[in-house]
Simulated scan of single mutants.
Amino acid sequence: MTSALTTTPATARRSRLRGLDGLRFLAAAVVVGYHYTGIDRDYWGRPPSAVFPTLNHVTRYGYLGVELFFVISGFVILMTAWGRPLPGFVASRVARLYPAYWVAVGLTVLLQLVWAGGRQLGWFDNAMNLTMVQEGFGIDSVQGAFWTLWVELKFYLLAALVLLVGFTPRRVLAFAILWPVLSQTFRLAGWTFLENLFIAEFAPYFGVGMLLFLIHREGGTLLRWLGVAVTGLLCVEQTVRHAPLATRGVGVEISPVACAVVVVAMIASVWLVADGPLRHLDWRWLSVVGALTYPLYLVHGQFGFAVIDTLHGRLGAYAVVALAVGLSLGIAVGLHYLVERRWHDRLRDGVLRLLGG
């Protein structure tokens, strides 16, 4: 999700894609809504479906915001990597991912010292979290939402392998279609290692995003749109198959039909802001909120849960949610302006020197 969350602020080249920044923030907002009012956690003292009997009918589907992030990531990773040498690609990703992440990990560890309801990890697990690859070693993340970062890192690795050969329209088309199809073959065959390595559960979302960028850059052809149809159908199949698991997570029924409709709508939304009627959106504030998406995603979980756990029953439920959102947004603003903007260029240049780029 993080390429969707962490793209460089809009340049002149992509100023007409400010709508993509807004879409990214919308995805983060629905994930926040899901975590605060949708998923069944103990922090409210009773199920969120009882605390928010009306709102929960919508926010219970907010986990699909992660899938939207992955579609956007597929689109954005090509936009940031096309025509760039591998060292430049690696340096740009490291510089965008790690500064805010390191500080978020540190702040979360400090929170765990004063809030008993947080994830109480040992010093080694906390230290391993600084690598961002802890999930690959079976180590818990300090914040639950960090699992998506491991998924994104594996996507970056696959994209880097294609970049080594060189991005061309034909290669991208082949990769974006064959990768999701092959990953599903591994899943059906029960080859767990390859299924995990090729990110079978989420490959279709990345693939359809890559195809939408290819159409954005090179134009639509029958084969490219057929690729969108194939990967889109795989996305629908994935979300329908996942619905029973999501039902257990939220404690109330998740409709497979509603999931399918949402997935189709979110794929369409990326096309709408890239090449459709909304492609000319050029409101600067969209890029401003888009820049806050990644830091908000990093901190909203444990910090928002701490507010809910501490204040529920003392204030009205919606007031508690507002305070949780306000705290998370406040920390996100600090991370962006005090960390990301100050350290991005320095870290990027340092990595480039290290790689000889």
Rank of each mutant, 00 (worst) to 15 (best):
residue 225 W to P: 03
residue 78 L to P: 06
residue 107 L to F: 10
residue 20 L to I: 13
residue 78 L to N: 09
residue 50 A to Q: 15
residue 29 A to I: 03
residue 345 D to L: 04
residue 301 G to T: 05
residue 97 L to Y: 02
residue 160 A to L: 14
residue 133 V to L: 15
residue 60 R to G: 05
residue 86 L to E: 07
residue 308 I to F: 03
residue 246 A to Q: 11
residue 60 R to S: 13
residue 312 H to K: 12
residue 223 L to V: 14
residue 266 M to Q: 15
residue 257 V to G: 04
residue 117 G to I: 09
residue 272 L to I: 01
residue 127 A to R: 00
residue 213 F to Q: 09
residue 109 V to D: 03
residue 57 H to T: 15
residue 355 L to G: 07
residue 101 Y to S: 00
residue 11 T to E: 12
residue 51 V to H: 07
residue 22 G to T: 05
residue 163 L to E: 05
residue 93 R to P: 03
residue 227 G to Y: 02
residue 258 A to S: 11
residue 81 A to Q: 09
residue 216 H to N: 10
residue 327 L to T: 05
residue 243 A to M: 04
residue 6 T to P: 00
residue 230 V to M: 08
residue 91 A to L: 12
residue 183 S to V: 08
residue 86 L to Y: 08
residue 186 F to W: 13
residue 100 A to M: 06
residue 45 G to T: 02
residue 213 F to H: 14
residue 316 G to Y: 11
residue 345 D to E: 14
residue 50 A to F: 02
residue 289 V to H: 03
residue 311 L to I: 04
residue 88 G to C: 06
residue 54 T to F: 10
residue 94 V to R: 01
residue 46 R to K: 15
residue 125 D to Y: 03
residue 259 C to M: 14
residue 177 I to A: 04
residue 6 T to R: 14
residue 263 V to M: 10
residue 340 E to G: 00
residue 65 G to E: 11
residue 302 Q to M: 13
residue 221 T to E: 11
residue 45 G to N: 01
residue 193 F to C: 00
residue 239 T to K: 00
residue 150 W to G: 05
residue 95 A to V: 01
residue 239 T to N: 11
residue 295 P to T: 00
residue 26 L to P: 02
residue 282 D to Y: 02
residue 310 T to C: 00
residue 161 L to F: 14
residue 30 V to Q: 09
residue 170 R to T: 13
residue 338 L to G: 13
residue 219 G to Q: 11
residue 290 G to F: 03
residue 140 D to F: 04
residue 353 R to A: 15
residue 22 G to D: 07
residue 255 S to D: 15
residue 110 L to Y: 03
residue 171 R to A: 12
residue 216 H to K: 10
residue 203 A to W: 09
residue 25 F to M: 15
residue 4 A to N: 07
residue 278 L to S: 10
residue 84 R to C: 02
residue 189 A to D: 12
residue 328 S to M: 04
residue 275 D to N: 14
residue 337 Y to E: 11
residue 169 P to N: 06
residue 266 M to Y: 11
residue 176 A to K: 06
residue 154 K to D: 02
residue 290 G to P: 07
residue 113 L to A: 15
residue 16 R to P: 01
residue 284 R to N: 12
residue 284 R to F: 03
residue 245 L to E: 14
residue 288 V to P: 00
residue 252 V to P: 06
residue 205 Y to A: 15
residue 231 T to S: 11
residue 292 L to S: 02
residue 21 D to N: 11
residue 88 G to T: 05
residue 265 A to T: 05
residue 115 W to R: 08
residue 51 V to G: 04
residue 339 V to C: 08
residue 90 V to N: 01
residue 345 D to K: 05
residue 9 P to H: 11
residue 58 V to R: 03
residue 14 R to L: 08
residue 117 G to K: 05
residue 274 A to Q: 02
residue 150 W to M: 12
residue 31 V to A: 05
residue 17 L to E: 14
residue 148 T to G: 10
residue 175 F to G: 01
residue 229 A to D: 04
residue 169 P to C: 09
residue 338 L to Y: 12
residue 70 F to V: 13
residue 228 V to R: 06
residue 248 R to T: 15
residue 6 T to N: 13
residue 97 L to D: 02
residue 241 R to F: 09
residue 195 E to L: 04
residue 210 M to N: 01
residue 356 G to S: 08
residue 265 A to R: 02
residue 30 V to T: 14
residue 293 T to A: 15
residue 61 Y to V: 06
residue 318 Y to F: 14
residue 50 A to C: 00
residue 201 E to K: 12
residue 288 V to H: 12
residue 153 L to E: 15
